[in-house]
Nucleic acid binder design. Sequence first.
DNA 1: TTGTAGGCGTTATCAT
DNA 2: ATGATAACGCCTACAA
Lengths: 352, 352
Amino acid sequence: MKPKVSAKDVARHVGVSVATVSNVINNVNKKVSEETRQRVLKAIEELHYQPDFTARSLAKGKSNLLGVLLPITQAGDDESLLLKDNPFYAELLSGIEFEAGQRGYDVIITGIRPEQSLKDWVRKRNMDGVIFLGITPEPFLNELKALHIPVVLMDSHPKQGDCHSIGHDDFLAGKLACQYLMARGHQVIGFLSGGIQTSPVNLKRYEGYQEALKEAGLTSRPNLVLEDSVSFEGGYRMGLRIAQEYEKSRKGESVTALFCAADIVAFGAIKALREKRIKVPEEISVVGFDNLKTCDYLIPGLTTVDQGIYHKGVLAAGILVDDIEGKLEACRHIQLPVRIVERDSVCPPREK
Amino acid sequence: MKPKVSAKDVARHVGVSVATVSNVINNVNKKVSEETRQRVLKAIEELHYQPDFTARSLAKGKSNLLGVLLPITQAGDDESLLLKDNPFYAELLSGIEFEAGQRGYDVIITGIRPEQSLKDWVRKRNMDGVIFLGITPEPFLNELKALHIPVVLMDSHPKQGDCHSIGHDDFLAGKLACQYLMARGHQVIGFLSGGIQTSPVNLKRYEGYQEALKEAGLTSRPNLVLEDSVSFEGGYRMGLRIAQEYEKSRKGESVTALFCAADIVAFGAIKALREKRIKVPEEISVVGFDNLKTCDYLIPGLTTVDQGIYHKGVLAAGILVDDIEGKLEACRHIQLPVRIVERDSVCPPREK
DNA sequence: TTGTAGGCGTTATCAT
DNA sequence: ATGATAACGCCTACAA
């Protein structure tokens, strides 16, 4: 176990002080003569010196660590990261990691666990900033603000206060999806999502969906607006209920299309419909939301609302680092554009 | 920006020395009288004191940080984590995070990027141990060994030397999958995977597949053994080639089943087959490998070889922490059991 | 331009 | 049982 080489070793090797070594590393090129600078650099190379971030963190009060907070499965379960159940988080995390790496930061992840104080997690590692994925519990957020650490909220209500937020115009997106369906002749359109009142994102999408119907002189049917958990299983359960509605409805009055506020929900719903022998898209068309890679895997491919997940992750990390490094004046509230990605889960309605 | 409370503050508040505070925190209950112990604990509570892991790392030479190294997309691409393309890594990472959290460690992730020295990444943060997901580049591995840090290799060749490894008996698994297909009447079975010679895992599965055929008195056809990247796209390309073979083969001699060495490959292959109007499973049955959640999303559901991904992650983190804490005598090489999970992508072959 | 010295928050050693 | 104090490796005034 050879002891790791420290700045002191480098200093001794060159015949200068540790301060000089430190200056070479930090002060881009001020304060140190070009000659000694080169000698120090050479020694660093030769000795394979690598500054210790732990010590540096302590001295500078800056860790170059970005905390990413991931939602976990609802209680009752084994309490694992939702990361494993919804590809959405993996894509996002991937984008975050990429940008963070580019800018010299490391990413550390954890689940948003209720019992444990999140603030402590952030404090004990002196994290420079954190990114919340998914819904952020209000109390945690307040804890964080007290720490005066840059925070980026993904997909939450824009008005969450003095943190950055990045999402999209969910109202518009919901409207867009619904209009897409109507443009293809659908009039009876169901809406499937997670809790509408508990999630501003779902609410906005719901309102957009409602608005689109209204503008077209249509109304939504309460029994076609379903809420359950944002998961495959939730989607499956809702799909089953839709299947029931479909079966018992009369000719010309049945659902012909579904707008699901998350791809993962659409996956579950489609599975349920198909098990009930209802054809997608021939009998019921489906539009999802997210544009996960998985949409391509399904047959038929899922037509959905793209929100550039990966890029969103990149952006989030970028903003966070910008703020950390003092390059930002005020809080940024970004609304990313969305667009419909057409695949094969939508077709014109057919008489029952 | 209130300055964070340190051990010194606690000490002053109680009227003892920092050493005593430290002792209360670390030495379970030795060396400190029960009375002062309680007083210190009370102060910690009142002041919301939280030990600083950064400082602790420096002093103890232990960071309580676990590094997880994730493969990245092949060069040429935007060089992002494979995490975003294959749900496999998300499930694994989720398991790792869970167990790490339970045992008081934090997880820090990064892509295995060629240019950057991995060793430096590990050293600069004083990581206590690392877990490699996917294929591990040999040079990196050697760099790591020189650091004398516990390493867990996932799904690599068991003989990688003095690191822990965790995988399964891929030979048996391959054989199992192939036998499953043969038991349902298939005789002409294709094999789709990533590089067979470049990945011991694929090689073993391939050999198992060969062995099963051989034992049944069958032989594999070279034009049905395909290699491409382990990705949806790779699977898609191979599926296209299989479709070609299928079309040009004569009655009674065509492929009737495929064994894909990864679910993600199976997804791509199925997509290609279906686009070429070949029905799965009626015309070609498919067996995958991994048992990703996504297998359930597809229609038909993908019959596959389950390898308990999440649990594997939990185990990996467990072993790593055990080693870090000196609870392990020697290197552990674990072979997890596998089993077939039946869904709907396999049925008896049908005459063309 | 370079070196000295104090400090970042903890732990560990050794007195008391 | 408790307290001083020296590390840990680095940064940053300030002094030379």
